[in-house]
């Protein structure tokens, strides 16, 4: 088996040209590797650069944005693809599930037309065959009476169903890599889990790779093997989903973990991270998280930290060793008093 990665990002940087002629950095040097069939979660607050990452991968950046660094899909450089290669890459290479299916599906066309247009235009399938395939995939994503749905318009179905239609449209193209950009944020909480479970199962069955973007850390941990936590256009921590709960080392990751309500215990008050999230261009010369970090020293604000290996993962924190030592101290002292 070849060990070539499915997707490889090296120092991916996205700058946004502002109207006054300046430029703002939204993504500041992203390095990521994804093996075929694996799922990676990209977690972070708004403005952390998650969506810019998928847009750069699919070459769907707005005209004002420019990407630097390299994006390689199955070893091929995405930036240098010509129009035909780009179309081939988008048809069967990557599939993108958008956050808001209501806006991302043409409201004037029937669901059947939406699901089949790529098959018919790109693969040359006849209408009947394309519709039959669409019907089968709709049934797979758990939609009842798929034949009737194909004849309906997007505004005639619920948001949850429309997101399943979106997922079905991506599965129909059988891409090697699925990019899911907050696929469940626009949905009810009860439907969220269901949709994510369907996506996860079908992805595993078909052996597709996935980059799952979310601000919901738990959701990412549930479906991804690896999780990259992003802050201000940089990865601050990268580790396997199993070890994240136990070994989260970056103060930001730990803040995210602490700010979730526990299912099994009554928490009177959730710990919040003070301050507001910043984008890459707002960050100072040092660690972008320093102004909100309880462990920050003066050195943190001037010296940019590097991504370094720590306890089986990668962490971008200059004081990670000290903080960790403090934490183990506290834990042992707590255990001693108990």
């Amino acid at each position: 088996m070849s060990t070539e990665p499915l997707l490889e990002l090296s120092s991916l940087t996205v700058d946004f040209a502002t109207e006054d002629g300046g430029s703002r950095t939204l993504l500041a040097g992203l390095d990521l590797t994804l093996a075929p069939g694996e799922a990676l979660g990209l977690v972070g607050e708004s403005g952390s650069g998650k969506s810019m990452t998928v847009r750069a991968i699919t070459r769907l950046l707005p005209p004002a944005a420019t990407a630097r660094g390299a994006i390689r899909f199955e070893g091929r450089d995405v930036a240098s693809m010509d129009a035909a290669a780009l179309r081939a890459y988008r048809d069967g290479g990557v599939g993108l599930i958008f956050q808001d299916p209501r806006a991302h599906i043409n409201p004037t066309k029937r669901i059947g037309a939406f699901l089949t247009e790529a098959l018919r235009h790109n693969r040359g399938l006849g209408r009947g065959e394309a519709l039959a395939r669409a019907e089968a995939v709709l049934a797979e994503v758990g939609i009842d009476d798929p034949a009737r749905r194909l004849r309906q318009y997007p505004q005639e179905v619920s948001g949850g169903m429309l997101q399943r239609v979106m997922i079905a449209s991506v599965l129909l193209a059988e891409p090697r890599l699925i990019l899911a950009d907050e696929p469940t944020t626009a949905l009810d909480v009860t439907i969220q889990r269901e949709v994510v479970a369907i996506l996860d199962r079908l992805r595993r069955e078909r052996g597709m790779g996935m980059v799952f973007i979310t601000h919901d850390l738990d959701l990412a941990l549930a479906v991804c093997g690896q999780v990259a936590v992003m802050y201000a256009g940089r990865i601050v921590e990268l580790r396997s989903a199993e070890s994240l709960h136990e070994r989260a080392a970056h103060p930001y990751t730990r803040g995210l973990l602490g700010s979730r309500p526990a299912i099994d215990a009554r928490a009177p008050r959730l710990t919040a991270i003070p301050g507001r999230p910043v984008s890459a261009f707002e960050a100072g010369p040092g660690c972008a998280f320093a102004p909100r970090c309880a462990f920050a020293t003066r050195a943190c604000e001037s010296e940019p930290p590097q991504l370094v290996p720590f306890e089986g993962g990668l962490v971008r924190c200059a004081r990670v060793e000290e903080i960790h030592a403090e934490r183990t101290d506290k834990r042992t002292s707590k255990e001693a008093t108990a």
Binding site: L60, R87, A88, G95, A103, N106, T108, E117, H121, N122
Partner: peptide
Amino acid sequence: EREHVQTALVRGLPRLVVLRTHVLRN
């Protein structure tokens, strides 16, 4: 500028098809 046009583009549809069936149509 509509989002659904981006969806059509990111599915690898030819630009002319996207223009005709999504942009001009709408």
